[in-house]
Design a protein around this nucleic acid. Structure first.
Ligand code: ZN
Ligand code: ZN
Ligand code: ZN
Ligand code: ZN
Lengths: 158, 158
DNA sequence: GGCAAGAATAGGACTAAGTCTCATTTCTGG
DNA sequence: CCAGAAATGAGACTTAGTCCTATTCTTGCC
C-alpha cells in the first residue's frame, strides 16, 4: 500500500477540489504527520450524503477500509470540527452525528421522525436567507447554524 | 405540609393560566393520581427563563423544594414532552435540556457559544414565518422545530 | 377517618456514548 | 536507516440516560 505521489498536486484548480481532497489538504497543513486513520475517516465521510455517528463510522471502517480505534475516531472528528471541515449535528437521539461541510452547495438541514428515528436532509434557500439575516442581528459571531424539524414521517403517521 | 384546597379553581379564566397551572391541569387530565414529584418539577421549570438539563433539575430540587429521584425526573420530562408541555433542546453539549412550551409568546431559539458553553435565548418573528412556511413544504408532519446558532460570544471572541 | 388497589416515586443496578491515559506504532527529516 | 515526534490503539473510566423492583403515596370507597 505505497500510495506513490499522493502528496503531489500542490496547486489544486479552484473549484475542482473534492471535499475529501480539501479536508486532506487542510489536515496536512495543520499537522506534521499524516496517517491512515484520518484518511480513512475522511474518505468514509466524503462517501456519505448525510450525517454519520461516531459508532457508525467505527462500524463501517471495521468491516471496510481499515479498522480505526474509537478514541481515534472521536479525536479525528473533533479535529475536523475545529477546522470547520465537518459539522456536528444533534438531532435529539442521544448521539451526535457528523457530516462534511461542503460549503454553499452541500449545505442542508434535517428532518427527524421522532417515532422511527429516520433522519432526512432538506434544503430551503428562502429559509437560508432568513437565517443569514438573523445571524447578523444576534449578539454572537455566528459560525454555523443548525435547524432540525421534528415530526412524524409518512410511514409513521398513517 | 397539607396544601388544603390546592385543587380548587376548576375553571381557569382563559388567558390568565400560567404555564405551571396549565401543565398541572393537563397532567391531572391524563393521570389518575397526582404526586409531589411532578409538581416540584413543573414548578421549577416554570420558574426558569431558559432550558435546564435533567441533572440540573435533580440538583436544584435536592437543595430546594423536595428531593426527586433521577428516574422520576426523566419519566416526568418524557411525559411533559409527550404532552407537548416542554421542549427538549439539544445544543450540542452531550446533554439534553428541557424548557416549558409557553405557546407563541415564550417561543424562542438558542445561541450557543462554543468556546465557553453559554446558552442564550433569542427570538425572530421573520425567521419564524420562514420556518413555518418551510414546515408545510416538507415530507414530514412537523410538530416542533429547533434552531441553534453556534459561534463565539462577545467575551470569547476578543 | 381507615382501608384496599393501584398509581407514583425512590433507589440503585445497568447500558451505552464519549473521554482519558498511556503504551505502541507510524511517519518524517536528516 | 535512525532518532524523535506525532499518530494511533487498547481499554479503563466517566457520565447521561434507562430499567427494574420495592416502597410510598393518592384516591375512591366504606
Ligand atoms: Zn445531513
Ligand atoms: Zn442552513
Ligand atoms: Zn431557552
Ligand atoms: Zn421557532
Amino acid at each position: 500500500m505505497a500510495r506513490p505521489g499522493a502528496r503531489l498536486a500542490a496547486m489544486p484548480r479552484a473549484g475542482t477540489e473534492s471535499w475529501s481532497e480539501r479536508a486532506q489538504r487542510v489536515l496536512a497543513e495543520s499537522h506534521r504527520h499524516s496517517g491512515g486513520a484520518r484518511r480513512a475517516v475522511v474518505e468514509l465521510l466524503d462517501s456519505q450524503s448525510c450525517a454519520l455517528s461516531a459508532l457508525e463510522i467505527e462500524d463501517a471502517l471495521r468491516t471496510g477500509r481499515r479498522r480505526v480505534a474509537r478514541a481515534s475516531i472521536y479525536r479525528i472528528l473533533d479535529e475536523l470540527e475545529r477546522l470547520e471541515l465537518v459539522q456536528k449535528v444533534e438531532v435529539g437521539q442521544a448521539m451526535a452525528r457528523y457530516e462534511p461541510l461542503r460549503g454553499e452547495n452541500g449545505h442542508h438541514h434535517h428532518l427527524v421522525c421522532d417515532s422511527c428515528g429516520a433522519v432526512m436532509p432538506f434544503t430551503d434557500p428562502e429559509l437560508e436567507r432568513a437565517i443569514k439575516k438573523t445571524s447578523r442581528r444576534v449578539p454572537i459571531d455566528v459560525a454555523v447554524h443548525e435547524i432540525v424539524l421534528h415530526g412524524a414521517c409518512a410511514d409513521c403517521r398513517q
